[in-house]
Amino acid sequence: MSLILETPAAAGRPAMQPVAARVASIIKETHDTFTLTIEPPEGDPVAYFQPGQFSMLYDFGVGELPISISGDPERREHLTYTIRSVGQVTYQLVTRKPGESIAIRGPFGSSWPMKEARGKSVLIIAGGIGLAPLRPAIYHVLRHRGDYNRLVVLYGGRSPRDLLYRKEFAAWGMLPDTQALCTVDYGGVSWRGYVGVVTTLLRHVRMQPTETIAMLCGPEIMMRYATRELESRGLPPSQIYLSMERNMKCAVGFCGHCQMGPYFVCKDGPVFPYTKMKPYMDLYEL
């Protein structure tokens, strides 16, 4: 949406042609989620991404999946992916060892509206693994702090043990003009943070709704309720952006699986202005 990107096809490689890349490290984030860093071939267009974009990750003989890039867009020596192990391909990917190879295509899709948000406050609302595709946007704001007003990160997870990037998250909260609040659906006695749905955190947010750009990623149910809440708090729909999830097999609009109304989530999204998504989000089985 915000930036016009050179596509891999334009960079001279066919859109469906993957490139092999070495796994540099694997970090266990939670009991089922891992952060994988890989080393793209030096100078390869695969490493040039905008916050919110995704790559197609392939593991030998098992299959290919769209995975959001969760690292810093300005550190091109590594590509970072945070992957929740929920199926065969994700399991294979998170059990790779440093030095082994996977193959990647990309980057694909639209990006968070970092340009449109300049001079405004950035409100990030993430649910579950949805924090991963938003992290590059947070890195971008932190790197270009003077370009933005307040940064607020609201994050909802299932339980304390499901929360991603906990140390980093706590550090964001310490930065000037920055709020980072998280809440869980189920907390134990040792959890001293918030318990409740992520929208309940909005009351702690100090920002001017008309001067704010909101970026949302998480389960669709969560995003539906969050957009309603944001609207009721005076945020115009045109200042809300969502990252949608659909079955994406090819990433380039050829497989047809990810269609949502008139859009292909892979090439028109995954990041959409809420104004475009609003007519379709409440249509069951669209």
Binding site: M16, Q17, V19, A20, R22, F60, G99, S101, A103
Partner: peptide, 13 residues
């Protein structure tokens, strides 16, 4: 559309 072949711990694709 795609071929891959194991090669010294890595693979060619």
């Amino acid at each position: 559309i795609t071929h891959a072949e194991r090669d010294n711990g890595s693979f060619r694709i």
